[in-house]
Amino acid sequence: MLTDEKIMLNVARGELQQLSVLFDRYKGPIYSFFYRTSRNQMLSEDLTQNVFEKIIKYKHTYKDDTSFKAWIFRIARNVNHDDFRKNKLKLNRNVEISELNIAESNLEATEEKREREHLLYCAIDRLEPLDKETLLLAKIEKMKYADVAKVQGCTESAVKVRVFRAIKKLKEHYYTLDH
């Protein structure tokens, strides 16, 4: 199987059709990143499309020693920030998790599991934006700390500090909401 990086290099050289493969691999994670931040399906789809439009526009800036995952999430982060600035939306929107957006495979989850999921996202919503973003990338999207550091433009150590801080706060919120 071709790596993301190799495919992106082909795209950068003009093989635009191959972007379809990367779209297939990353539409879910990128949409998920926006959706878990905004809880807004339409907005998240618009922003996901925006990310791929930017990839087409700035494909020539991709360097062959760059992790594609870190690169695309960095674009997603910038798109998210631009949207926030333009619309002056608060990142913590008090919107319930849409049942419609949960993948079909999860429809059979137990009620208790669903409540736990709901609780987790309510607790994440209460975090500061940077802590929230760090947790979403590192724990929900399972990105390596080195890649999160590239996305956030900081050191890996700084990411570890943020993760520790965010998890402590998350636990407080999680069990406060639970009682």
């Binding site: 779209f23 879910g28 949409y31 789809e45 791929f52 087409i56 495979s105 999860n106 987790l120």
Partner: peptide, 21 residues
Amino acid sequence: FDNAPQVEPSAKLQSRFDDVL
């Protein structure tokens, strides 16, 4: 964290991307 549900975009996103591409 490990049990976080997958969230999926609608099919419209695919067709919009196909148009853009």
